[in-house]
Design a protein around this nucleic acid. Sequence first.
DNA 1: TTAATATTTAGATATTTGTCTAAATACCTA
DNA 2: TAGGTATTTAGACAAATATCTAAATATTAA
Lengths: 84, 84
Amino acid sequence: MNLLFKALNDDTRRQILELLKEDNLTAGQIADAFNISKPSISHHLDILKRADLVTSEKKGQYVEYTINTTILEDVLKWIITLKQ
Amino acid sequence: MNLLFKALNDDTRRQILELLKEDNLTAGQIADAFNISKPSISHHLDILKRADLVTSEKKGQYVEYTINTTILEDVLKWIITLKQ
DNA sequence: TTAATATTTAGATATTTGTCTAAATACCTA
DNA sequence: TAGGTATTTAGACAAATATCTAAATATTAA
């Protein structure tokens, strides 16, 4: 839960998730969407991965990232419980 | 949105919200529930207030805090949109 | 009005976080 | 195999954050 909220607590990472919602993208394609260095984006992707919000698959020399929204159920449940 | 995620990105603050879900509490009562100094709790309450997750009302020499869950709709919507 | 209680503000400090550049690693292709 | 491209790792640094103690403010009650 902590890892999840931590991962979501950054605008760049939330934007990455919104991008990946539309399409799987390689690390480079994601980096190109931001005015941030590739290593920084790589770091953000690592945080998203550790929170299980994305998965990655090596495709030749590229690494393709995919969003995993199932983990967001946990956040939804926590919030909905709080609202009841 | 940023303020909201920031406020939720701390275990103590999430626990404060869970306490306030059960009952309105004064700043002191909230502080008593944690092994953290009163000024630190006061600071957490300020962050929750700025995110509009709680409201406060002065009652004599006490300050009573109330949870505001309506603002969580924004987070729910963001997550649900991401999942679709 | 003075003393006690409740809360917040101020200021300090250690830790975490987001960013960068440089270097390392992995893969592809000529 | 050598050179180029894609990505990650390492290390440094500034800014943000969570915490503390001490002091200030506000309210109540003797």
